[in-house]
Amino acid sequence: MTALDCNRPREAAAKARLATRSGEHGLAWLAVSPALLLLVGLLFGPVAAVVLFSLTDWQLGSFTFHFIGIANFRALFADPTFWKALTNTLVYVAIVVPGTVLLGLVVALLIETSPGLRGFYRAAHFLPVMSTMSAMAIVWGTMLHPTIGLVNRALGVMGISGVNWLRDERTALLALALIGIWQGFGFAMVLFVSGLKAVPQQLYDAAAVDGADGVLDRLRFVTLPMLGPVTMFVVILTAKRSFEVFDSVRVLTQGGPNYASEVLLHRLYTESFDFLHMGYGAALTVVYLAVIVLLTLTQARLLERRVHYS
């Protein structure tokens, strides 16, 4: 264990070093192995399984199944309910995203303009974000109740006769979108506030020296441009959340009346777990997955391109 060690041939030394380094390899692999196992077992394996299921006629509980090619997808695309659910989801997203983002932005700007009651406002607007949607959906259900609901009572005071919001084909989706905005805009507000805090004061000073010192000028030339990246981010986040709308639909309308408020995820749930049409449900899942992944990827691309100022 002395100088002799170093007189051994170079190859042996190299081998010894390789051993220590592979020891580090081993350690690293040991550290990642649980995650790797679960990644395969709980994420990638299941995704492959869903694709596989979507090509079979398998029903839960039965022991046999056949590959039926793309028959499930053909059935899906021939199903008017699916198209209804898809359009409804898109309409829902188209209402909730701008509503949430705009409301969140306005509230954030107003909260940040002066310190009065700032803490109260922030907490108050954030409360819906933290609340359990299934419980609050029940509450909303009573608020939108045609006779005893707060909404119609308020309208009644103003001399307007309300409708049965959640049972009316024309308003059901709209009412759900309102609930979606209610829950989401506080979060958008918080993200905008953190974006506002990141705007350097010097920019306002510079704008003031350049003559843009009015509230609207500052907003137009400094604040809004600087909020570009955050806005993009909030839009993406809200869109993703809106595509995942489920709780309020399940609790309040279950897709009704007459599929007027049916959305993708609820469709997926009922087909797969109420009717146990696993093959059909899997095909729907594949479509849903494709939509979400496509959305995320395009938006990530957009995000990379659009919002880099530095």
Partner: peptide, 19 residues
């Protein structure tokens, strides 16, 4: 860091495989 080749000796002893 591990060298790609060569040896390090401390007090006359090769320490290449020591942590």
């Amino acid at each position: 860091e591990a060298q790609n080749s060569g040896e390090v000796l401390v007090a006359g002893r090769c320490v290449d495989d020591k942590r």
